[in-house]
């Protein structure tokens, strides 16, 4: 079965088109990371899954049913951690979870769920006194009520400290092992890397890439970023570096240069600078991180770039960072 299926979905608001002609499929049991910068249309898409927002065109099906007609039945089988929500300030944490249990006709023990998200000792406090991270945990506890078949988590780690974000990932993993489909959005890539089977990247309301994390990394290519400390670099020297085969861009950063190039062009770059009479004090390289990859898709033109055009002769096993002092 297909957990989530969007076909030709478009959403126009009065002044902006938030989502354009989006086709998206999430299979049963999959952990799908829905990525994009803020304002890309992620929350609008999730709001359409929940029937909070109705598409201008296209169909949205969740767990096999159309959300426009079967929203309540779908949400009975779905756990949701919304974005930008607020809690009922006068009600305790336990009452929140008990309300979710009652709403879903489930038989979970609210205290057990609160324990699971680390709020066991705060169950009796009014949720209005909770911190942002605690509210996020509370909403997660509510989402876990009734062992849902599908978990929709909108920016689940927002407001959480690194330890909290890790607990969140652990819970996502546990739920996935139980057999639940997990669909979550994020603008932080490292959360996705660790838990996702598949990633979709949304930009300006369009899906610009969809693959496994490894697949995306390959598609963008494994270029490196070379940071060179060379105070004496003048314009001719910079031009000479630009002309080196495998160099895609050179930018000045104070006394240094930031060179994007294929991994095997690094030596040639340093050599060219020295040939031009520029003293290189220090340099280090960085493998393309997921962050670079993400930025390439969301800001640059990687989506249109042919993956085969990247240099194949790079060393995959090289350490991510190597520092060379001179």
């Amino acid at each position: 079965m297909t957990a989530i299926e969007l076909r030709g979905v478009r959403k126009e608001f009065a002044d902006v088109t938030a989502v354009r002609d989006l086709d998206l499929t999430v299979e049963d049991g999959e952990v799908y990371g829905f990525l994009g910068p803020n304002g890309a249309g992620k929350s609008t898409t999730i709001d359409m899954l929940l029937d909070l927002v109705r598409p201008t065109a296209g169909t949205v099906r969740v767990l096999g049913s159309d959300v426009a007609t079967a929203g309540v039945a779908i949400r009975r089988r779905t756990g949701v951690l919304p974005d930008g929500f607020s809690v009922y300030g006068r009600l305790s944490g336990r009452k929140h979870v008990a309300f979710a249990v009652e709403s879903k006709d489930a038989d979970d023990d609210p205290d057990a769920l609160l324990d699971r998200v680390g709020l066991g000792s705060d169950a009796d406090r009014a949720a209005g006194d909770y911190s942002k991270g605690m509210r996020q945990r509370l909403a997660l506890a509510m989402a876990l009520v009734g062992d849902p078949e599908l978990l929709v988590l909108d920016e689940p780690s927002s407001g959480l400290d690194p330890a909290g974000a890790k607990e969140m990932r652990d819970i996502v993993r546990t739920e996935a092992e139980r057999g639940a489909t997990v669909f979550f959005s994020s603008h932080v890539l490292e959360q996705v890397d660790a838990v996702c089977d598949r990633v979709g990247i949304l930009r300006d309301g369009e899906l610009v890439a969809e693959d496994s994390v490894e697949g995306l990394r390959e598609a963008v290519g494994d270029g490196a970023t070379l940071e060179v400390s060379a105070p004496g670099a003048d314009d001719p020297a910079v031009d000479a570096v630009r002309a080196v085969a495998g160099v895609s861009s050179v930018t000045r950063d104070g006394d240094g240069l930031v060179v994007n190039c294929a991994s095997d062009a690094k030596t040639a770059v340093i050599g060219t600078l020295e040939d031009a009479g520029v003293a290189v004090d220090d340099f280090h390289t960085r493998e393309a991180s997921l962050e670079d990859l993400f930025l390439a898709y969301t800001e640059g033109d990687a989506a249109e770039r042919d993956p085969d055009a990247t240099d194949p002769g790079s060393d995959d096993d090289a350490p991510a960072t190597e520092e060379v002092g001179r």
Partner: peptide, 14 residues
């Protein structure tokens, strides 16, 4: 306005 409606309508309520 506060956003608690999102929490409410995330649950199976019409």
């Amino acid at each position: 306005e506060s956003g608690s409606l999102k929490l409410l309508l995330s649950l199976p309520h019409s």
